[in-house]
Design a protein around this nucleic acid. Structure first.
Lengths: 180, 180
DNA sequence: AGTTAGTATCTAAGCACTTAAAGATTAAGT
DNA sequence: ACTTAATCTTTAAGTGCTTAGATACTAACT
């Protein structure tokens, strides 16, 4: 893992500038005609997402899963018994293309974690359902995943976490509203 | 674009529950033995990132770029004249593997937007430098990109944006600290 | 000088997506 | 009933990454 420690800033000299702050400052110098302030926000979203993905990917490996397969199993599990959803429903929850869902379901079916069941009423529809093995696995994996996420939040107090979630929701709404 | 409007929630009945809030609630019902509250935060990070990527991808298309190629050109541009960085430096700024950077640079070189220059002192090192075409393109693209980002932030007031950036920095620090 | 270790980049194989289009089925309009 | 349109899933081709390992070079030690 090339980035394991190489890019952790040396913070020994007080509150050092973060990488993202440096990017903003560089843009101010190079292009004083522009206002680069949104980078302070979106750059951090980007970096937090990458850091987070790297950590949870490692957590899922213990269960033979990756973020993509975990995502599908978790959607089926939290839907409740009989742990069954259609491809269209799964695509909407995961913000994924239909082809992407087909790919994920192929892998999970090969691994024996889901089965596909053609709908008898509407024969276009295919239901994907957790197998007993899939149910057992996701029930273990979600517990480890939440433990891990709590660990990642150890440095953020509860009030800040709540506020961060609320502000992120406002940001998502703003992005959707701006999407012409 | 399949998700253009299909997944925008109907908010006509007041402040409806967001998708992420529903996920948390479903987990509380299905697994009352677990505390799913971190999902409210990380789920939103994930969704905001996906929404954001979708919008900027469309913006970059106008310049024949994608987020990956824009990222490299922007790093070179904000570094200042002579707009030159090594692969290792670029990988660190973008949190990317060395192979990923090689791939990005191959594409940019084929497009005539950068040139590769072997270092004369240390012949292991390859500098990548903006061509005049690359410089002209990124100078146009960064202006459009920042305009676009300001548009995406229209629904978030400045104080909230600042606070969101600060909280995201705290979250990144917490993730890095927990990464054992 | 010669060996060993470390570093910078690139190659190869594989993976998880994407868009575009096709196939199968259902719904709507006449 | 018949045509047209809409919907659900899958296939095909291509893209941008990943890890693992190869290659080329430099630095450190003896």
């Amino acid at each position: 893992m090339a980035h394991q420690d190489a890019d952790v800033p040396d913070d020994s000299a007080g509150s050092a500038l973060s990488d993202v702050d440096r990017f903003v400052q560089q843009w101010r110098e190079q292009r004083p005609d522009l206002d680069p302030s949104p980078i302070a926000l979106f750059g951090r979203v980007h970096r937090v997402y990458l850091r987070y993905q790297a950590v949870i990917t490692k957590c899922f490996e213990d269960f033979g899963l990756n973020p993509a397969s975990f995502d599908v199993l978790a959607a089926l599990r939290r839907a409740g018994a009989p742990y069954r959803m259609t491809g269209t429903e799964l695509a909407a929850e995961s913000l994924l293309s239909s082809a992407g869902i087909t790919f994920r379901l192929d892998k999970l079916e090969q691994a024996g974690l889901i089965t596909r069941i053609r709908d008898t009423q509407d024969r276009r529809v295919v239901h994907s359902q957790l197998t007993p093995e899939g149910l057992a696995l996701i029930d273990e994996a979600i517990a480890a995943h939440l433990d891990n996420e709590h660990r990642l939040l150890a440095g953020v107090d509860d009030a800040d976490a709540d506020q961060l979630a609320a502000l992120l929701q406002r940001l998502e709404d703003s992005i959707l509203a701006a999407r012409q």
